[in-house]
Simulated assay, not measured.
Amino acid sequence: MDVFSDVVATMKSGRAKLTRSRYNGRWGSRYGPYPGAGFHVVLEGTCWLVPPSGPAVRMSAGDVVFLPHGSVHGMSSTPDCPLEDLLPALSMTDALVGRVNRHTLPDIAPALDDTLLLCGAYRLRRDVVHPFLRGMPEFLHIPTHRVQHTELHAVIDLLGINTVEDRPGADAALPALLDLLLVYALRIWLEAQCPEESGGWCAALKDPAVGAALDRMHRDPARSWSVRELAESVGLSRTSFAERFTAYVGQSPIAYLTWWRLSLASRLLRETDAPIASVARRVGYTSEYAFAHAFKREYGTPPGSYRRTARETPAPHQDAHAGPEDR
């Protein structure tokens, strides 16, 4: 897998949950905080995102907003509309898609168009969140009506069809569509909105040398990479490569490789029944003892105990980030 695919794979636990909410009149809802990454998709009408800080942002049909840190924010009919706390949201164990809701502030009925939103959240395991995600801003607003991204437009159209209409197979189609929504939203941000001059992972993934080295680590984590070998593979001296990599990524090449191997191992322990010795080999450790020692140093518990605990206690879930229940 390439770096970007691995980032997406490691940031999610379980499947996303969403609710479709139709609002009319004047309305305002407050969301978060929650231990996950939230999103809103405007299917019809217009509304305003009230971010954790800064001015409100107008959103139109087709727009997407992604909130990678689960920060408190609001969605409303106008930027100055009061925000109401949500009623308890549907739990992550309920149906994949919640019901259409209507929510209008009483005794106020200006001529405002209906707004249809998809609001939801991805579970995150905070113990394996990739540093790429940690370095993202509080929210990403992707105004799809202003950009030519046919893939994202297609996903939004299909999400609308499979949530607004009660069609056979929707529960099978929606998880894949939500994964695609996440991939395309993050890709657009990285390619069009993430400035290289900001440094960090924006610069790392776009830099020809550092990006190529990261790609090699992710595609073959079991290989016994050395800094010299990685540097030669991207056409730099050992010293220049190490300094450049550390400046962008925030860790030395070997420190990041070790973190990535153990992060991958944690996912294999949670999601597969592979023996611990097999997991160790798959992530580049020839000795099960050395793997167990490194894993305990990173996660505070041996691999076997980590696997048992992860299976006995599901990843912490958040509310559906999805609007109030039907009034």
Rank of each mutant, 00 (worst) to 15 (best):
Y256K: 06
P82F: 00
S287Y: 09
S263R: 15
A203S: 11
G70S: 11
E191A: 13
W27P: 04
K296A: 14
H103E: 08
M59A: 06
T10C: 06
V279Q: 07
Y306A: 01
P208S: 04
D2G: 11
A222V: 02
F4W: 09
D273S: 14
R102G: 05
T104D: 12
A89F: 02
G32S: 13
P275Y: 05
R146G: 15
R223W: 09
L124S: 13
T78H: 09
A222W: 01
M1L: 09
L230T: 04
P143S: 14
A204F: 02
L159V: 06
R22Q: 14
W27L: 00
M75E: 03
T144V: 15
D85W: 01
T313I: 13
Q251M: 15
R261G: 08
R223E: 11
P106S: 10
G36I: 12
N101F: 04
R102L: 12
A294N: 04
A204T: 05
P303D: 09
L190E: 12
G54N: 09
S240V: 10
A231K: 11
A322C: 13
A322F: 02
V147C: 07
S305Y: 05
N162G: 04
K296M: 08
A37F: 07
G120K: 07
V100F: 02
L174K: 03
T93C: 05
F4Y: 13
G45K: 07
P208G: 06
L158N: 06
E196K: 10
D157I: 02
L205T: 08
A242P: 04
I156V: 15
V100G: 08
S53V: 11
G304L: 11
F295L: 01
G120P: 06
L186P: 03
P110A: 07
F295N: 07
V72C: 08
R126H: 11
G98Y: 02
P82M: 00
L268K: 03
V72L: 14
H218E: 07
V155R: 07
K12G: 01
D215C: 04
Y299V: 02
W189E: 10
T150Y: 12
T272H: 04
M11T: 14
C202G: 15
A61Q: 12
Y31K: 03
R167A: 12
Y31N: 12
K17C: 10
A192D: 14
D326H: 11
Y306L: 00
H40T: 15
T46E: 15
G28W: 00
L105H: 14
R216H: 10
A255H: 11
M136D: 00
R281N: 12
K296V: 00
L264F: 07
D113L: 08
